[in-house]
Write a protein that binds this DNA or RNA. Structure first.
Length: 636
RNA sequence: GCUGGAGUAGCUCAGCCGGUAGAGCACCUCACUCGUAAUGAGGGGGUCGUGGGUUCGAAUCCCAUCUCCAGCUCCA
């Protein structure tokens, strides 16, 4: 055959000469595509543009606009960086260098590590290499040959990778003198990589295992256009301004101190938001038939031995001794809740028994993982333990998922869902795990939620469904969780009386909605950039008298606002109105109420909204009514 | 916990090679009585994270330690 037929994503077909490269094929489609294509997908497989066409195929060209196109581009960028490192620092050993969501990285083993200056030098070298338009060449060799080659170069990490690869042939990619074990594909040559920046330097364990040697990881990001790179860096800068640790201080919400690493101190304004969150939470729980309990923070060691925490969670727990007896500070609320359950004989008629607990727990997290309110050593869980019959599980889990969904919608959050299964360290039989996991899957299927499966990531007592929310820097944080537990009821010998008048073992669900109030508050701060919706705002309205003579009027309105349940303040200082507005704006107060002669004489307020600006005068009663409605409706 | 970086006034930061600490904002006082993002003047405030060491002398050099930041590992 002298020709091949290619089918394009838009359905059109083209007939091309047999043996043309994909780059040439792209050109036949259009100049623009030829310029923007980075790689291609043929019949579903990713290939280089230098690949030749020898059969009739369906082609999809990948550009930077697609996720896979970006991945190829960034992956090639990491090779470019590795080449620069090889040139500048001979003897450096190479780990892996993949593309990641916002860029790429490469792990290196270089004695002494890299410095910031090294990074600049590497970046400079990369520009040099990029300008030379060096082609990426693919070569397929036998696994054995590749092994010998990397072994002779002393590339121990590559050899280790090869040992783990199935199959007889592997592909190598050459970029100038830099050869890497790599599946590909890559962009045609180094000149494609125009706009890039090395963004970070950090240690990373080989293969992500802390028992392995720590390598030096260099992070970078790259784009096809300089403009996009600039925009990306600008967005990062903007995101940093939303950092809850910064806003927490600027808005006077909370603080951390050397005297209590990982323990948050909540300031008056932070506590107002906290209370608003919890008022909402309690109201919604009462509607759904929950009761609430509170259990002690310090409980005897024997309880934790019984629950399995002693064996499975000890390294995260704090201990103390009281009257020569060993106690533990609770890392979870469940064992205490179980003691309450056991104070009565329960009937199946009570089920599902929904028992909530806003519990303060302590966990000894490794020092390096602490992170503002997102990762602390003391936090408050909006926990609940639900006791129920096995046949009630799916309905109950569906109900909780809908509850989570309702709560998150109120805040304007979207979340992603993950299902985690049996971990290595666990209690309970395989059969229990199987039963519990399939129940969770059934519930997810019923609500038609897409989820990610995390094998072996469950809690030690049961599988779980987690809800993750993204922070300002796109890191995701687990908030809500639903955990099924057949094991603890067993360990604590829980029972209920069934309709047959016999004792039976109940099933237990652990669940949280906010997860940790501390974390959730942190996520909220970033989500709103500190500008809380009015129902959550520490100060909902502030009165700003223009001059001294308007203070009595402001004081009267302040009282009326407060009597109406509004969190209001008045700025009665001797300052210009512009100054007071600036301060209120910086504190992100939703409503600023300017009062001067005009307002005093007409019973009005001049309303300024923090985002919408000057809204003009309104009768005070009208303003109050609309403010109350906004708070009542939890308007975003 | 590990790798790298950083700790100077409430905040942001300056202080080169060692000579005994400074700015802006904030705070306090006074004057101004003001109409939608900063009125002016004056003043107070730091044992330079902590503990050792080197030195005639340490914010500065060395060691240890604590905390924070980025990442890894781990997790709500």
């Amino acid at each position: 055959m002298n020709t091949v037929k290619v089918k394009l994503p838009d359905g059109s077909e083209k007939t091309l000469k047999n043996g043309v490269t994909l780059a040439e094929a792209a050109k036949s489609v259009g100049n623009r595509l030829a310029k923007e294509a980075l790689a291609a997908r043929i019949n579903g497989d990713l290939v280089d543009l230098s690949a030749k066409l020898e059969n009739d195929v369906a082609i999809e060209f990948l550009t930077f606009d697609s996720e896979q196109g970006r991945e190829v581009f960034r992956h090639s960028s990491s090779h470019l960086m590795a080449y620069a490192v090889q040139e500048l620092f001979p003897g450096t050993k190479f780990g892996i260098g993949p593309a990641i969501e916002e860029g790429f990285y490469y792990d290196f083993d270089k004695p002494g590590g890299f410095t910031e200056e090294d990074l600049n030098a590497i970046e400079k070298k990369m520009r040099e290499i990029a300008a030379r338009a060096i082609p990426f060449r693919r070569r397929e060799v036998s696994r054995k040959e590749a092994m010998e080659r990397f072994r002779s170069l002393g590339e121990v990490y590559k050899v280790e990778l090869l040992e783990g690869i199935e199959g007889d042939t592997v592909s190598l990619y050459e970029l100038g003198d830099f050869v890497d074990l790599c599946r590909g594909p890559h962009v045609p040559d180094s000149s494609y990589i125009k706009a890039f920046k090395l963004t970070g330097l950090a240690g990373a364990y080989w293969r992500g295992d802390e028992r392995n040697k720590m390598l030096q990881r260099i992070y970078g990001t790259s784009f096809t256009k300089e403009k996009d790179l600039k925009e990306h860096l600008h967005l990062l800068e903007e995101a940093r301004k939303r950092d809850h640790r910064r806003l927490g201080r600027d808005l006077d919400l909370f603080s951390f101190h050397e005297e209590g690493p990982g323990f948050a101190f909540f300031h008056p304004k932070g506590l107002v938001v906290w209370d608003a969150l919890m008022d909402f939470w309690r109201k919604e729980h009462r509607k759904r038939g929950y009761v609430e309990v509170r259990t002690p923070i310090i409980l005897a060691r024997s309880l934790w031995e019984q629950s399995g925490h002693w064996d499975n969670y000890r390294e995260n727990m704090y201990f103390t001794v009281i009257d020569d007896r060993d106690f533990a500070i609770k890392p979870m609320n469940c064992p205490g809740g179980l003691l309450i359950y056991k104070t009565h004989l329960h009937s199946y008629r009570e089920f599902p028994l929904r028992c909530a607990e806003v519990g303060l727990v302590h966990r000894h997290e490794k020092s390096g993982v602490l992170h503002g309110l997102f990762r602390v050593r003391q936090f408050t869980q909006d926990d609940a333990h639900i006791f129920l019959l096995p046949e009630q599980i799916v309905d109950e889990v569906v109900g909780i998922i809908e509850f989570v969904d309702f709560m998150y919608k109120t805040f304007g959050f979207s979340s992603t869902v993950e299902l985690s299964t049996k971990p290595e360290k666990h209690i309970g039989s395989d059969e229990m795990w199987e039963q519990a996991t399939s129940a969770l899957k059934a519930a997810l299927a019923r609500v038609e939620l897409d989820y990610k499966l995390n094998e072996g990531e469950g809690a030690f007592y049961g599988p779980k469904i987690d809800f993750h929310i993204r922070d300002c820097l796109k890191r995701t944080w687990q908030c809500a969780t639903i955990q099924l537990d057949f094991a603890l009821p067993e360990k604590f010998d829980l029972s209920y009386i069934g309709s047959d008048n016999q004792r039976h073992r109940p099933v237990m669900i652990h669940r949280t909605l906010y997860g940790s109030i501390e974390r959730f508050l942190g996520v909220l701060i970033e989500h709103y950039g500190g500008a809380f919706p009015t129902w959550l705002a520490p100060v909902q309205a502030i009165l700003l008298p223009v001059g001294e003579s308007h203070r009595p009027y402001a004081a009267t309105l302040l009282e009326r606002l407060r009597n109406a349940g509004v969190r209001a303040e008045a700025d009665l200082r001797d300052d210009k109105i512009g100054f007071k507005i600036r301060e209120a704006q910086l504190q992100k107060v939703p409503y600023m109420l300017v009062v001067g002669d005009r307002e005093v004489s007409s019973g009005a307020v001049s309303v300024r909204h923090r985002q919408r600006g000057d809204l003009g005068p309104q009768q005070f009663e009208d303003f109050l009514a609309s403010l109350q409605a906004e708070i009542e409706n939890r308007t975003l």
